[in-house]
Design a protein around this nucleic acid. Structure first.
Length: 828
DNA sequence: GATAGCCGTATTTTT
DNA sequence: TACGGCTATC
């Protein structure tokens, strides 16, 4: 989509002379610059001391485009914040003249705090430091009319969007099962990430959905948003882009305002964000574009949601004369950790190429340790033991003696289903843990319902909110009534709440429905009036009471009802920090997060994705198996670049560790309820033996084998690997295992076992093979019959009690009833 | 109009 | 296995 930039207006005219009493912009006053240089020679300000030469260069190169390639743990945030402090301290710009964008609210918050420390608390004055989206909202509220919106537009979240699209699909007379709204929402999101409006989308894309009506549907969606006075997340970027393009005077205002632009995590920018940035960074010819982007191509892990690593790779082309500064001195990790991570990531092509190094040399530092476990249960158990050992400070290797806080440890998983096993284990152990990420507070059902009431009170035109709560709690306003309301509103081109208040004056509805609707409309009229009269906290409570919403949950006898009521209380509490209901709504739509309890000492469990930017003393990386990590789907859908992104994810995982990094893989994992045999991740193969150590069977292979009653078995033959997974013969060992795997299980009848070669796709022509894929082939007749006595390598002996295709339900003597693929059992 | 069971599906996630 | 969404039923 790079050619979409051809039509970005370029300003050739001279910049307007600055008449405001602001400090001289960079490059304007020679004398001023000379004086600054002199001052600098005299004494570098404190905030600069302690920076290494590269960091310092990144901070002090203020004129022109700068790309800072900041490897993991190289002090990226420090550079960014110091740079801002430096610009302020040297009088180059006022806080309000800097645009600083981040991706997450967390990053924005952290940056604000750290600048505050450096500058001394005056950061309130940085109005343009925030996420792409929050700055987008701010721009759009100022110029809403230029996008055909009112400045009090609502921001819809994914859930609203899907419901809306579903309506549109149905309105088109299409089958909403054949054309799922969720999928189309994803497509729209993808287009918007690329900066494409309905007219811009590729013909193929447009035809691929809804019997060729993709483009019309997208256009209809945009029209509907406008009539709802609403935006989705993508619009927060796209509308400003359109406004800038169509209103050069508006854009010029911002050009004059923003003397310095800073972008964090540049490798995560998508095309739309890039366009947005380009428009704002564009300067008249000959005037320096003071853009500073900070990022790390090796940590680009959001390609799947539209991030374009390319943006960072071609920065120098986009911003001619750009200075590229690499930060490679790592202050976080041991040399073993860096060595392992560096060797792994070197398998990727198409990188800008950095090698992290550290000065710290400590012979006591542990290597990265790779552990094998029999299955995911054992993996969780062993990780739990290791955590407890560290916590106690037992003498295990080099961590001996010292006690470690749980707060300093984290388990980073590829996919969230892996978390459960750890949680279960930690609950039985009584080990504190916290799950980071996961279902978020504002996404909970009861919170969304409550929010819908608040939204509708503030915004009577919010039809989505109306539809959400019109019959929640149940008040006898079912589909029929709602559809009638909907049609009526559409026909008159008025919001549904307005339609409702007209309809209750007529005899259209049955008395029962009419009464219910009348009460609802009255309630909203009442609440709207109170908006100015009472505090938003009181109002919020009243709304939830008077609507019957709290009663609904009080009368609900289910187990989760009390929790939901508690959440509602929490919601009201969290409103305290805001001045008005409107302010609160805005906050929630942009900041979909709620704070975690930081006080307790607990192990963190999270996905690799949400671990980016964090660091821990000890990191556990479970689940390094083919199919899970790299994830099969990333391979299938992303091919080669998918594999590289997975590898970057692995790199991110390892580089989170300061001192200890433990990697695990298992031989058996339950996937969708079926036990499957798994192979070690190819990434294990890509770790350098010099920095990695294979744990001697610290996991109890033998003992465990006995535990389940299936003791010595042919498994011992199939598993030469666990013990011989030792450094020099690593590859050979793996080859052995692959063969063993195939010999024992692979050639069974029935299910398909495929070997997939990655001949072309492997880095440097390397052949990656041995992908074991057990496909569900339901129509292949099983060679087993009900009642057969069979042996399973994990569960031992049992009798088949049911067969569905190649899936067997077996009553095992020791392990109880399990469902397994027929390839993993053998008749005895 | 409300509810019980059935079917299909199943990464990663911020805003 | 586990959940959500939809259909069929009362």
């Amino acid at each position: 989509m790079t050619n979409s930039f051809d039509d970005i207006p370029f300003f050739d005219e001279e910049p307007a002379p600055r008449k405001n009493p602001e400090p001289a912009a960079g490059g304007l006053g020679i004398a001023a610059r000379a004086m600054a240089a002199r001052d600098q020679r005299r004494a570098a300000p404190d905030y600069l001391s302690g920076l290494n030469p590269e960091q310092r260069e990144a901070v002090e190169t203020l004129d022109g485009p700068v790309l800072v390639l900041a490897g993991a743990g190289t002090g990226k945030t420090r550079v960014l914040t110091t740079r801002i402090a430096h610009i302020l301290a040297t009088g180059r710009a006022f806080p309000s003249q800097m645009l600083a964008v981040t991706f997450t609210n967390k990053a924005a918050r952290e940056m604000k705090e750290r600048i505050g420390v450096l500058v001394g608390g005056a950061v309130e004055g940085m109005p343009w430091l925030g996420t792409f989206h929050s700055i987008g909202v701010k721009l759009l509220r100022r110029h809403a009319e230029l996008a055909g919106l009112r400045s009090d537009f609502t921001i819809l979240d994914t859930d609203d969007v899907i419901r809306l699209i579903k309506q549109l699909i149905q309105a088109e007379g299409l089958d909403d099962k054949r054309w799922p709204a969720r999928q189309f929402a994803g497509m729209i999101d993808g287009w918007k990430n690329k900066g494409l409006l309905p007219k811009d989308i590729p013909e193929g894309d447009a035809r691929a959905f809804a019997n060729g009506k993709g483009r019309e549907l997208y256009a209809a969606y945009q029209a509907r948003l406008k009539s709802l006075n609403a935006c989705d997340f993508g619009d927060l970027l796209l509308h400003p882009i359109a406004i800038f393009r169509q209103n050069p005077d508006v854009l010029k205002d911002y050009h004059d305002r923003f003397r310095y632009i800073l972008v964090d995590e540049y490798q995560d920018t998508n095309t739309a964000q890039y366009m947005w940035l380009r428009l704002l960074a564009q300067r008249p010819k000959g005037v320096a574009q003071n853009v500073c982007c900070v990022g790390d191509d090796d940590q680009s892990i959001y390609g799947w949601r539209g991030a374009e690593v390319d943006n960072i790779l071609r920065f120098e082309k986009d911003f001619p004369g750009a200075k590229v500064i690499k930060l490679e001195r790592n202050y976080r990790s041991t040399e073993h950790i860096l060595g392992a991570a560096g060797h792994l990531i070197a398998h990727n092509e198409g990188r800008l190429g950095k090698t992290l190094f550290t000065d710290r040399v400590d012979p006591d530092d542990e290597k990265v340790i790779v552990h094998a476990a029999w299955d995911s249960e054992e993996e969780a158990r062993a990780v739990g033991e290791e955590i407890e050992r560290l916590q106690r400070g037992d003498g295990n290797g080099n961590s001996g003696g010292k006690k470690h806080a749980l707060n300093d440890m984290a388990i980073l998983v590829r996919a969230s289903f892996q978390m459960r096993e750890f949680e279960d284990r930690f609950v039985t152990l009584g080990l504190n843990y916290r799950v980071i990420g996961g279902p978020r507070f504002y996404e909970r059902l009861e919170i969304r319902d409550a929010m819908a009431y608040f939204r509708l009170t503030c915004q009577p035109a919010d039809d989505l909110a109306f539809e959400r709560i019109v019959n929640t709690p149940k008040r006898g306003l079912g589909d029929t009534t709602v559809r009638y309301l909907h049609d009526y509103a559409r026909a008159r081109d008025i919001p549904m709440l307005a339609a409702a208040s007209e309809i209750i004056e007529t005899d259209e509805l049955k008395p029962k429905a009419r009464k219910a609707l009348f009460d609802l409309v009255q309630n909203f009229r009442n609440w709207q009036q109170k908006l100015e009269a009472v505090t938003h906290l009181e109002l919020a409570e009243q709304i939830l009471e008077e609507s019957g919403y709290t009663d609904m949950w009080k009368n609900d006898k289910s187990a989760e009802a009390p929790g939901r009521l508690e959440n509602l209380k929490e919601l009201i509490r969290s409103m305290e920090a805001f001045e008005s209901m409107r302010g609160f709504l805005e906050h929630v739509s942009l900041v979909m997060e709620a704070e975690q309890n930081e006080d307790m000492d607990a192990v963190s469990i999270m996905t690799l994705h949400s671990a980016k930017g964090l660091e821990f003393d000890t990191v556990f990386l479970p689940g390094w198996e083919e199919g899970l990590f790299p994830h099969q789907r990333a391979l299938d859908e992303g091919g080669r670049s998918g594999l590289e992104e997975e590898r970057r994810l692995a790199y991110v995982g390892i580089t989170r560790a300061k001192h200890r990094c433990h990697i695990w893989f298992v031989s058996n994992r339950r996937i969708h309820g079926l036990w499957q045999s798994t192979m070690p991740s190819r990434f294990l193969d890509e770790l350098p033996p010099s920095h990695v150590e294979v744990a001697a069977s610290d996991n109890s292979y033998g003992g465990y084998g006995g535990r389940g009653g299936y003791g010595q078995s042919r498994f011992d033959k199939a598993e030469p690997f666990a013990n011989s997974y030792s450094t020099p013969g690593w590859r050979r060992a793996q080859a052995n295992r692959t063969d063993a795997t195939r010999d024992n299980w692979g050639t069974r009848s029935g299910h398909a076992v495929e070997r997939i070669g990655y001949g072309e796709s492997g880095p440097r022509g390397r052949t990656i093979e041995g992908e074991l894929v057990a496909k569900s082939v339901a129509d292949t007749p099983s060679k087993f019959s009900i009642g057969d006595r069979v042996f399973h390598i994990k569960f031992g002996n049992g009798n088949i009690s049911a067969i569905e295709g190649n899936k067997l339900t077996i009553d095992f003597d020791k392990a109880g009833q399990k469902r397994v693929l027929d390839g993993f059992v053998e008749r005895v």
